[in-house]
Protein backbone atom coordinates (compact mmCIF):
# COMPACT_ATOMS: atom_id res chain seq x y z
CA UNK A 1 0.00 0.00 0.00
CA UNK A 2 2.73 2.41 0.99
CA UNK A 3 4.78 1.62 -2.11
CA UNK A 4 1.72 2.20 -4.31
CA UNK A 5 1.10 5.64 -2.80
CA UNK A 6 4.74 6.55 -3.21
CA UNK A 7 4.64 5.33 -6.82
CA UNK A 8 1.46 7.27 -7.65
CA UNK A 9 2.52 10.43 -5.83
CA UNK A 10 6.12 10.64 -6.97
CA UNK A 11 7.56 10.01 -3.49
CA UNK A 12 9.24 6.82 -4.68
CA UNK A 13 12.91 6.65 -3.81
CA UNK A 14 13.77 3.35 -5.44
CA UNK A 15 11.77 1.93 -8.36
CA UNK A 16 12.25 -1.63 -7.07
CA UNK A 17 10.24 -0.69 -3.94
CA UNK A 18 7.06 -0.65 -6.02
CA UNK A 19 5.08 -3.89 -5.89
CA UNK A 20 2.85 -4.42 -8.93
CA UNK A 21 0.15 -7.10 -9.21
CA UNK A 22 -0.66 -6.58 -12.90
CA UNK A 23 -1.80 -9.89 -14.41
CA UNK A 24 -1.42 -11.76 -11.11
CA UNK A 25 -3.86 -13.93 -9.17
CA UNK A 26 -3.90 -12.13 -5.85
CA UNK A 27 -5.14 -13.41 -2.51
CA UNK A 28 -5.70 -10.99 0.35
CA UNK A 29 -5.96 -12.40 3.87
CA UNK A 30 -8.04 -10.49 6.40
CA UNK A 31 -11.44 -8.84 6.63
CA UNK A 32 -10.81 -5.31 7.88
CA UNK A 33 -10.54 -1.97 6.13
CA UNK A 34 -6.86 -2.52 5.36
CA UNK A 35 -7.74 -5.79 3.62
CA UNK A 36 -10.32 -3.92 1.51
CA UNK A 37 -7.65 -1.33 0.64
CA UNK A 38 -5.31 -4.14 -0.48
CA UNK A 39 -8.09 -5.79 -2.53
CA UNK A 40 -9.03 -2.64 -4.31
CA UNK A 41 -5.45 -1.49 -4.90
CA UNK A 42 -4.74 -4.86 -6.57
CA UNK A 43 -7.80 -4.43 -8.83
CA UNK A 44 -6.57 -1.01 -9.92
CA UNK A 45 -3.12 -2.35 -10.64
CA UNK A 46 -4.72 -4.74 -13.14
CA UNK A 47 -4.59 -8.01 -11.19
CA UNK A 48 -6.02 -10.98 -13.11
CA UNK A 49 -8.12 -11.92 -10.08
CA UNK A 50 -8.43 -10.77 -6.49
CA UNK A 51 -9.83 -13.03 -3.77
CA UNK A 52 -10.32 -11.96 -0.19
CA UNK A 53 -10.03 -14.84 2.27
CA UNK A 54 -11.55 -14.28 5.69
CA UNK A 55 -11.94 -16.72 8.55
CA UNK A 56 -15.33 -15.51 9.76
CA UNK A 57 -18.54 -14.86 7.80
CA UNK A 58 -19.63 -11.58 6.22
CA UNK A 59 -21.76 -10.68 9.22
CA UNK A 60 -18.73 -10.78 11.53
CA UNK A 61 -16.35 -8.70 9.41
CA UNK A 62 -14.73 -5.90 11.40
CA UNK A 63 -14.52 -3.21 8.71
CA UNK A 64 -16.95 -0.85 7.05
CA UNK A 65 -19.76 -2.56 5.09
CA UNK A 66 -19.65 0.24 2.55
CA UNK A 67 -16.07 -0.66 1.60
CA UNK A 68 -16.94 -4.37 1.28
CA UNK A 69 -19.75 -3.41 -1.09
CA UNK A 70 -17.44 -1.16 -3.09
CA UNK A 71 -14.81 -3.91 -3.29
CA UNK A 72 -17.39 -6.40 -4.52
CA UNK A 73 -18.64 -3.97 -7.18
CA UNK A 74 -15.09 -3.55 -8.41
CA UNK A 75 -14.67 -7.29 -8.90
CA UNK A 76 -13.20 -8.65 -5.66
CA UNK A 77 -14.28 -12.24 -4.89
CA UNK A 78 -14.94 -13.05 -1.24
CA UNK A 79 -14.19 -16.42 0.31
CA UNK A 80 -15.74 -16.39 3.77
CA UNK A 81 -15.27 -18.95 6.53
CA UNK A 82 -11.84 -19.96 5.33
CA UNK A 83 -8.89 -19.85 7.63
CA UNK A 84 -5.46 -19.77 5.98
CA UNK A 85 -3.03 -22.34 7.38
CA UNK A 86 -0.11 -22.55 5.00
CA UNK A 87 1.53 -21.04 1.99
CA UNK A 88 2.16 -23.42 -0.88
CA UNK A 89 5.17 -23.06 -3.15
CA UNK A 90 8.92 -23.47 -3.00
CA UNK A 91 10.70 -20.50 -4.55
CA UNK A 92 7.60 -18.50 -5.25
CA UNK A 93 4.00 -18.47 -4.11
CA UNK A 94 1.83 -21.07 -5.85
CA UNK A 95 -1.20 -21.02 -3.63
CA UNK A 96 -2.55 -21.06 -0.15
CA UNK A 97 -3.91 -23.87 1.96
CA UNK A 98 -7.08 -23.03 3.87
CA UNK A 99 -9.50 -24.88 6.15
CA UNK A 100 -13.20 -24.18 6.30
CA UNK A 101 -14.73 -22.76 9.47
CA UNK A 102 -18.14 -22.47 11.05
CA UNK A 103 -19.26 -19.68 13.33
CA UNK A 104 -19.22 -20.68 17.01
CA UNK A 105 -20.24 -18.95 20.21
CA UNK A 106 -19.58 -15.23 20.68
CA UNK A 107 -16.35 -14.25 22.51
CA UNK A 108 -16.14 -11.73 25.38
CA UNK A 109 -16.51 -8.85 22.87
CA UNK A 110 -19.63 -10.39 21.35
CA UNK A 111 -17.91 -11.41 18.12
CA UNK A 112 -18.46 -14.99 17.06
CA UNK A 113 -15.39 -17.18 16.91
CA UNK A 114 -14.47 -19.15 13.81
CA UNK A 115 -14.21 -22.88 14.51
CA UNK A 116 -12.24 -25.10 12.17
CA UNK A 117 -14.02 -27.93 10.31
CA UNK A 118 -11.87 -31.08 10.48
CA UNK A 119 -10.68 -32.44 7.15
CA UNK A 120 -11.87 -29.44 5.15
CA UNK A 121 -8.46 -28.45 3.79
CA UNK A 122 -8.26 -27.08 0.28
CA UNK A 123 -5.69 -25.27 -1.81
CA UNK A 124 -6.45 -22.02 -3.62
CA UNK A 125 -3.98 -21.12 -6.38
CA UNK A 126 -2.28 -17.70 -6.21
CA UNK A 127 0.71 -15.77 -7.56
CA UNK A 128 0.80 -13.37 -4.64
CA UNK A 129 -0.55 -13.35 -1.10
CA UNK A 130 -1.08 -10.19 0.92
CA UNK A 131 -1.45 -10.41 4.67
CA UNK A 132 -3.67 -7.72 6.21
CA UNK A 133 -4.03 -8.88 9.80
CA UNK A 134 -3.51 -5.42 11.25
CA UNK A 135 -0.59 -3.77 12.97
CA UNK A 136 1.03 -4.14 16.34
CA UNK A 137 2.99 -1.67 18.45
CA UNK A 138 6.43 -0.63 17.25
CA UNK A 139 8.04 1.26 20.16
CA UNK A 140 11.19 3.25 19.36
CA UNK A 141 14.47 2.00 20.82
CA UNK A 142 15.04 5.34 22.57
CA UNK A 143 11.87 5.22 24.71
CA UNK A 144 13.69 3.47 27.58
CA UNK A 145 16.37 6.09 27.81
CA UNK A 146 13.78 8.81 28.44
CA UNK A 147 11.69 6.86 30.90
CA UNK A 148 8.80 6.26 28.51
CA UNK A 149 7.32 2.95 29.66
CA UNK A 150 5.34 0.54 27.51
CA UNK A 151 2.98 -2.32 28.38
CA UNK A 152 3.42 -6.02 27.58
CA UNK A 153 2.27 -5.39 23.98
CA UNK A 154 4.73 -2.55 23.45
CA UNK A 155 2.08 0.14 23.67
CA UNK A 156 3.12 3.39 25.35
CA UNK A 157 1.49 3.80 28.77
CA UNK A 158 -0.41 7.11 28.70
CA UNK A 159 -3.79 6.70 30.40
CA UNK A 160 -6.72 8.98 29.76
CA UNK A 161 -7.53 8.78 33.47
CA UNK A 162 -4.06 9.95 34.59
CA UNK A 163 -3.38 13.16 36.52
CA UNK A 164 -3.01 14.87 33.14
CA UNK A 165 -4.80 13.14 30.27
CA UNK A 166 -2.49 10.97 28.12
CA UNK A 167 0.67 11.81 30.09
CA UNK A 168 3.37 9.14 29.80
CA UNK A 169 5.65 7.96 32.62
CA UNK A 170 7.88 10.92 31.73
CA UNK A 171 5.87 13.91 32.96
CA UNK A 172 6.92 16.21 30.11
CA UNK A 173 5.92 13.70 27.44
CA UNK A 174 2.38 12.88 26.32
CA UNK A 175 1.22 10.29 23.80
CA UNK A 176 -1.93 9.23 21.96
CA UNK A 177 -3.37 7.42 18.97
CA UNK A 178 -2.40 3.95 17.77
CA UNK A 179 0.88 3.87 19.72
CA UNK A 180 -1.10 4.03 22.97
CA UNK A 181 -4.25 2.11 22.15
CA UNK A 182 -3.06 -0.22 19.39
CA UNK A 183 -4.24 0.13 15.81
CA UNK A 184 -7.70 1.64 15.66
CA UNK A 185 -9.84 4.13 13.74
CA UNK A 186 -8.71 7.53 12.48
CA UNK A 187 -11.42 9.20 14.54
CA UNK A 188 -10.23 7.65 17.81
CA UNK A 189 -6.71 8.92 17.12
CA UNK A 190 -8.16 12.39 16.53
CA UNK A 191 -10.08 12.17 19.80
CA UNK A 192 -6.97 11.18 21.74
CA UNK A 193 -4.78 13.85 20.14
CA UNK A 194 -7.32 16.51 21.10
CA UNK A 195 -7.63 15.25 24.67
CA UNK A 196 -3.85 14.97 25.01
CA UNK A 197 -3.64 18.65 24.00
CA UNK A 198 -5.98 19.42 26.91
CA UNK A 199 -3.74 17.31 29.16
CA UNK A 200 -0.66 19.22 27.97
CA UNK A 201 -2.31 22.59 28.62
CA UNK A 202 -3.33 21.51 32.12
CA UNK A 203 0.26 20.36 32.71
CA UNK A 204 1.61 23.71 31.46
CA UNK A 205 -0.99 25.49 33.59
CA UNK A 206 -2.47 27.35 30.62
Amino acid sequence: MVSNVNHCQGFEEDESDFINFKGKQVIVLGGGDTAMDCNRTSIRQGAKSVSCVYRRDEENMPGSRREVKNAREEGVQFLFNRQPVEIIGKDKVEGIKVVETVMGAPDENGRRKAEVVEGSEQIIPADAVLVAFGFQASPSPWFDKFGIETDAYGRVIAPKQGKFMYQTTNEKIFAGGDMVRGSDLVVTAIDEGRKAADGIMDYLDI
Binding site: L29, P84, V85, E86, V131, F133, G134, F135, Q136, A137, S138, S140, I148, V156, T168, K172, I173, F174, A175, G176, G177, D178, M179, G182, S183, A189, G193, A196, A197, I200, Y203, L204
Partner: peptide, 16 residues
Protein backbone atom coordinates in the same frame (compact mmCIF):
# COMPACT_ATOMS: atom_id res chain seq x y z
CA UNK B 1 6.22 19.60 26.43
CA UNK B 2 6.24 16.82 23.85
CA UNK B 3 3.41 14.82 22.27
CA UNK B 4 4.15 11.48 20.65
CA UNK B 5 1.74 10.27 17.99
CA UNK B 6 3.90 7.84 16.09
CA UNK B 7 1.38 5.13 15.26
CA UNK B 8 1.91 1.40 14.89
CA UNK B 9 3.91 0.12 11.99
CA UNK B 10 4.80 -3.48 12.70
CA UNK B 11 2.63 -5.76 10.55
CA UNK B 12 0.84 -8.48 12.45
CA UNK B 13 1.87 -11.95 11.43
CA UNK B 14 -0.32 -14.96 11.86
CA UNK B 15 1.74 -17.64 13.65
CA UNK B 16 2.39 -20.34 11.05
Amino acid sequence: AVFLGMGTYKAMKGGS
